[in-house]
């Protein structure tokens, strides 16, 4: 079964959260490339000088993460190596466009997932695979260097998981198989 490229439209945000700094929301950008999206996200986080504001921003994004299909919380969708529990579901359409859904038991992690999905949802599979974790470092969310592979580095583990799923799906697309892994 081939899926269509999902447009990532967040549900109505929690009004309490949106009160805080209703920055121009990234989803309002029109057909931006992954690079443009990344620049937007980096700029957005760079303008937040206080750690608490960056945490608030992530919580805001966590509240926008679409509800995850509970039946997809299966072992093969679990991102391993995180201190939090994270699930990623990925699909690919006929023209290699990727679609992702995610959930976590941690609100901050959900915020990370929202950002990653916003960056890569709808992108070509090759773009997803070629995306470099180092590019996220400038966002300065948390004091951990993003490039470090670590149990607590959700950015890293979730991105790697998205890229691995994408590779698998692209191979299946090429050689046949289920387009949802």
């Amino acid at each position: 079964m081939n899926s269509t490229t999902a447009t990532f439209r967040p549900p109505n945000p929690n009004p309490n959260l949106i009160k805080f700094k209703p920055n121009s929301h990234p989803t309002h950008m029109t057909s931006p490339t992954v690079t443009k999206k990344l620049n937007h996200l980096v700029t957005e986080f760079k303008t937040l000088h206080q750690p608490i504001d960056r945490v608030k921003k992530l919580l805001h994004y966590a509240s926008l993460l679409p509800e995850f299909n509970q039946s997809r919380k299966i072992e093969s969708n679990r991102v391993t190596g995180c201190t939090t529990q994270v699930w990623i579901d990925a699909t690919i359409n006929d023209v290699n466009g990727m679609s992702f859904h995610a959930d976590s038991d941690s609100e901050i992690t959900k915020g990370f997932c929202y950002c990653l999905i916003w960056l890569l949802d709808g992108a070509d599979g090759r773009e997803v695979v070629e995306f470099r974790i180092d590019d996220l470092e400038e966002m300065n969310v948390g004091i951990l260097p993003v490039r470090a592979s670590s149990r607590v580095n959700t950015w890293h583990n979730v991105l790697i998981s998205m890229q691995n799923r994408t590779r698998d799906l692209m191979l299946m697309q090429k050689y046949g198989g289920d387009n949802n892994v």
Binding site: I52, T109, G142, V152
Partner: peptide, 10 residues
């Protein structure tokens, strides 16, 4: 992890 992140950052 949310708790530890906030304690650290804030």
């Amino acid at each position: 992890t949310d708790l530890a992140t906030f304690l650290d950052q804030q």
